[in-house]
Amino acid sequence: MLEAEELACLKGDRLLFRGLAVRLEAGELLRVTGPNGYGKTSLLRILCGLAVPEHGAVRWRGVEVRRDRESFHRALMYSGHAAALNDLLTPLENLRFACAAAGDDPDEAACAEALGRIGLGGQIDLPARVLSQGQRRRVGLARLFLAARRPLWVLDEPFTALDVKAVADLTATLSAHCRAGGIVVLTTHQDAPFETPPRVLDLAGVAC
C-alpha cells in the first residue's frame, strides 16, 4: 500500500540517510526509531508529501504520491510535531477547522463527542491557550476518531506529554485502526504498551 524506495534525505549540507526502503501493507504498524537528529521527523514529512526527498520516491497504492497528491492526501491523516492549535480558538473550533481544512465536514456534535472521548469534555469552550501540553496534544489526537476512514495515519511523537492512561487509550485506538485494515507510521521515544510489538525501522541503520 505505502511504499518508499531508495529514499535519501538532505538537511542543509548533511545527508541524514540514504537507501531507505520500506513497504507497508494494510494492517501494519511501523515505529520509526533512532537518536535525535537522525531524521525521524524528516522521514515522516517525506512520507506524507510535505517535503521532497533528495532521491527516491514514495508510492501510495502503486502511484507516486506527487503524481496524485489529491487522492493520497484524502487517504492521509498527519499529526505533526506542532499541535496545529490556535490559542485564540477553543478546542472545538480548532478541531472543526482541522477537519474542514482536511476536506471532511463533521458536525459540531461529532467533534464534541470526539473531544469527550479523548477526555476533554470539560474544556470544550475554553481558549486553547489555557490548556496544558498534554491537553493540547489530545485536541490534535481527537481527530483520529473523526479520521477513522482515512487508512494511513502518520503520527510524529503522538505520546509526548500524555499521561499513562491516555497512552494506553491511544495505543488501543492505533491497534484497532490496524486491525480494521489501516496503516500507522509513528515515531516515539517511549515504550508504548502495544499488545503485539510493532515493526521497527531504526534510522541508525541507514544513517550516513
Partner: peptide, 10 residues
Amino acid sequence: DGTLEQLLLS
C-alpha cells in the same frame, strides 16, 4: 503553530 502544514495536506 503547524496549521500551515495541515492546510498543505488538504
